[in-house]
C-alpha cells in the first residue's frame, strides 16, 4: 500500500464520518426544543465544517483552505457570541417555556418528540 493510497482511503473515511456528523447535527437543529439548543447545533455545524475544509485541503492539495478554515472559525465564534447576547436580551420565549414544563411532566429523556414537534410549529407560526 502506497502513501497516497493510505491518504485517499483515510480522507474518504473522514469525509463520510463528517457527513454523518453533519446529518446528526442538522437533526438536532431541526428538533432542538429550545433556541439555545439550535444555536449550539449551529456552533457544532461550524466546527464540523472547519473539519470538512481541512480534509478537503488534504484531498485537493490547496493549502489555502486552511486560511479559510481559520476565518470560518473566527466568524463562527462571533456568530455564537451574538446569538448568546440575543438569548440573554430576549429572555425565555413563551413557546419554549411551555415546552419546558411539558418536558418536566414527562421526563422521558433521549426522545421527547411531541413537545419538540409542537414547539417547532409554534416557532414557525
Amino acid at each position: 500500500m502506497s502513501a497516497s493510497a493510505i491518504l485517499s482511503f483515510s480522507t474518504a473515511f473522514a469525509l463520510v464520518t463528517l457527513s454523518l456528523g453533519l446529518l446528526l447535527t442538522v437533526a438536532r437543529i431541526v428538533r432542538g426544543p429550545t433556541l439555545p439548543d439550535r444555536v449550539l447545533g449551529l456552533d457544532m455545524l461550524v466546527a464540523i465544517a472547519i473539519g470538512f475544509i481541512a480534509v478537503i485541503a488534504i484531498r485537493s492539495g490547496f493549502n489555502l483552505y486552511i486560511d479559510i478554515a481559520i476565518a470560518l472559525s473566527l466568524v463562527g465564534f462571533l456568530a455564537t457570541v451574538a446569538f448568546a447576547r440575543f438569548i440573554l436580551a430576549r429572555g425565555l420565549s413563551p413557546e419554549s417555556a411551555s415546552a419546558d414544563s411539558r418536558a418536566a411532566i414527562a421526563p422521558k429523556r433521549g426522545k421527547a418528540p411531541a413537545p419538540a414537534r409542537r414547539q417547532k410549529k409554534g416557532g414557525r407560526r
Binding site: S10, T11, F13, A14, L15, T17, L18, L20, G21, L22, L23, L24, T25, A27, R28, L40, G41, M44, A47, I48, G51, V55, I58
Partner: peptide, 16 residues
C-alpha cells in the same frame, strides 16, 4: 484524520 473525524461524529451524536 480518522481520530478527528470520529471525535466530530461522537460530538454530533452526543448533541443528539
Amino acid at each position: 484524520l480518522v481520530a478527528g473525524s470520529i471525535f466530530s461524529l461522537l460530538a454530533a451524536l452526543g448533541l443528539l
